[in-house]
Nucleic acid binder design. Structure first.
Length: 585
RNA sequence: GCGCUUGUAGCUCAACUGGAUAGAGCACCGACCUUCUAAGUCGGGGGUCGCAGGUUCGAGUCCUGCCAAGCGCACCA
């Protein structure tokens, strides 16, 4: 209906253009809004206010001309000019029932659209280093990314979800070394564990698996392992230099076996991450390996192009990229003085690879702490001669965990962080997903564990799910009372749904496709959450105000068709969020 | 110091991207269960949209300057 009005207005404007009332080269974007106040009708547009200046007339006069040129349509009851020049549309009340037929016909497809027109979109999200289990910070990115993906699919985009696996690089070497040291400890060696190594309990578990599978194959005496190393930080040294020296020592002593230790750690943790995300309802089309970019020469190739485009230079033994010439704060190292490419070098190759795969839009979902990284990636794409405007980086702020009034402290340093798995175990998948996407992603959010668990009206998850369960419950009672639903009879008598609560509900239902479209194109899943809360409220209010299972056959069946539509839309929305729509609670 | 993000009711957050009288939920006060699930509903009070300017028919929304919070400013990822 909204779309239809937009078309009508556009037609009217085109007419005015042929009459030279409006300039022919004008290409206005018509924007129709739902009104906030019933006195303003059902829909309104400010188009006359926007165009008045260029038409060299006053808004109200232009509004009159627009209305005069409007096509006649029986769905429009009347059109008024209000305020400074708003055009208000009052729709024919009979038109409001159409939505029930639409929902019934489309079913679970109601709300889907084709505005994406099959455009290829890649959504990359989470992509946490496989150096440990996912924590609650990753959870927000996982929930947000998967819902954004669902919304884009729902609006006709061709979506490819991807997790970039950082299976190369220094952090992974630190993990591999940490695993090996725990392995040595478990084999009976004693030494002081490095301050910069991974200390989590899971590292010991992986070490134990190594022992189970390979016995003492990788054991070396601690005298040999720690001979002639620089000092660790607690002893007055540098923890980074110390751990790097240990990594070199591990590679030296283990030779080819280093890769076995490394891969055991990688595969164990990555497997855990995959299981974790799958249980959280977050799935991927592809797990993209950083190492593969090194192995197939993609990094060398990207750097060669940068070099031939004159964006690389050497300084202090390292190779630098002139990102400062393309909007970044300073130049960035791509090859360290030790000859190793930086993480940034692989990321250049990775983003280039994404574009070469033919995606029309790239969406990267990052933690907000990585925001400073955006200019250099865009700079790299420009320097490669690629289209950097295709890259869209969405930032997700951290969530603070609360237990009622008490803030849950989290410190990565001590290894005492709350994992996503712990969160899921405590509050469940549905509540976790709902809470994560309840707020705009750039908004810092407080996540109250007590609230997420509570089975009360304070908890918005239960509130929405309860609305769905309630409709199902009505139908159970309906059967118990010996009624048989007659959908056709209900459809023929929808006009009996003339109570104010019913009108409100019909309007809310009709808004659903608009909400999906907006939530998708703006990448704002919280709009869908807000909508579902409103729909649930409208339904609960209706439920309390009217009895559905009345004796009157026509009215009863009309009402049943209405609440069936409510159930359908609630289920559709919850499905997009990856949240269950329970039939009973 | 520079950059990014944020600042709206006591608290947590919305506000259709520049529109009409800024809205919800908690919390607080007061009503509603012999009824299709009270995990629900109804009513009430509560606001200098961080502050100050500017842009225009019109600003919570845009521009400038301050103030405050978070994050970032590696040859880590």
């Amino acid at each position: 209906m909204k779309k239809q009005l937009e078309t009508f207005i556009s037609q009217s404007l085109a007419t005015l253009q042929t009459q030279n009332i409006l300039a022919a080269d004008l290409n206005p974007s018509v924007h129709i809004e739902r009104t906030r106040d019933v006195a303003h009708g059902d829909f309104a547009t400010n188009i006359a206010l926007i165009l008045a200046k260029s038409a060299k007339t006053n808004p109200r006069q232009l509004a009159e001309q627009i209305i005069a040129a409007l096509p006649v349509n029986e769905a429009i009851l009347k059109v008024e000019i209000a305020g400074a020049g708003f055009i208000n549309f009052f729709m024919n009340p009979n038109a409001q029932y159409q939505v029930i037929a639409d929902i019934q016909a489309a079913g679970e497809k109601f709300g889907l659209s084709q505005i994406g027109a099959g455009k290829k979109v890649q959504v990359e999200f989470v992509s946490a280093n496989p150096t440990g289990p996912l924590h609650v910070g990753h959870g927000r990115g996982a929930a947000y990314g998967s819902v954004v993906g669902n919304l884009l699919i729902a609006t006709g985009f061709d979506v490819h979800r991807e997790y970039y696996v950082n299976d190369a690089g220094r952090q992974m070497d630190i993990l591999a070394t940490s695993v090996w040291l725990r392995y040595l400890e478990a084999s009976g060696e004693t030494f002081i564990f490095p301050s910069n190594a991974y200390r989590g309990e899971y590292v010991r578990d992986i070490a134990q698996k190594l022992i189970d599978q390979h016995s003492k194959k990788f054991a070396r005496s601690s005298e040999i392992v720690f001979a002639n190393l620089p000092l660790d930080e607690p002893e007055g040294g540098d923890k980074e230099i110390y751990i790097d020296a240990l990594i070199s020592r591990a590679k030296e002593l283990l030779n080819a076996d280093y890769r076995v230790v490394f891969d055991t750690g990688l595969n164990d943790i990555l497997g855990d991450i995959k299981d974790d995300l799958a249980e959280f309802g977050t799935t991927y089309n592809q797990w993209f390996s950083e190492r593969s970019l090194m192995d197939d020469g993609s990094i060398d190739k990207a750097l060669a192009v940068l070099k031939s485009n004159n964006y690389l230079y050497e300084k202090d033994g390292a190779i630098w990229f002139k990102s400062s010439e393309l909007g970044d704060e300073k130049d960035r190292v791509v090859i360290r003085d030790n000859g190793q490419p930086t993480y940034f070098a692989s990321d250049i190759a990775y983003h280039w690879n994404k574009l070469e795969r033919g995606f029309d839009v790239l969406i990267d979902i990052w933690g907000a702490d990585h925001h400073g990284y955006i200019p250099r990636v865009k700079a790299a794409l420009i320097a490669l001669g690629a289209d950097a405007t295709k890259l869209n980086v969405l930032l997700v702020q951290f969530a603070s965990l609360w237990r009622g009034e008490e803030k849950v402290s989290m410190s990565t340093r001590s290894g005492e962080f709350v994992t996503l798995r712990e969160l899921r175990d405590e509050v469940g998948k549905d509540a976790a997903r709902f809470f994560y996407v309840m707020r705009r992603s750039e908004q810092h959010m407080d996540f109250d564990l007590e609230l997420a668990k509570s089975k009360s009206n304070e908890n918005p998850v239960f509130y929405v799910q309860y609305a769905h369960a309630r409709v199902c419950s009505v139908f159970r009672t309906h059967g118990e009372k010996g009624f048989t639903q007659d959908i056709t009879l209900g459809m023929a008598n929808l006009a009996e749904l003339n109570a104010e609560h019913e009108t409100v509900l019909l309007t809310t239902l009709a808004r659903y496709p608009e909400v999906i479209e907006r939530a998708a194109t703006q990448y704002e899943p919280h709009l869908l959450i807000n909508y579902l809360r409103e729909l649930a409220t409208d339904f609960h209010t209706y439920y309390n105000a009217h009895q559905f299972l009345v004796e009157n056959d026509t009215l009863r069946n009309a009402r049943l068709n209405l609440i069936t539509s409510v159930r359908q839309v609630l289920a559709n929305g919850l499905t997009l969020l990856g949240i269950s729509a329970p039939e009973a609670m």
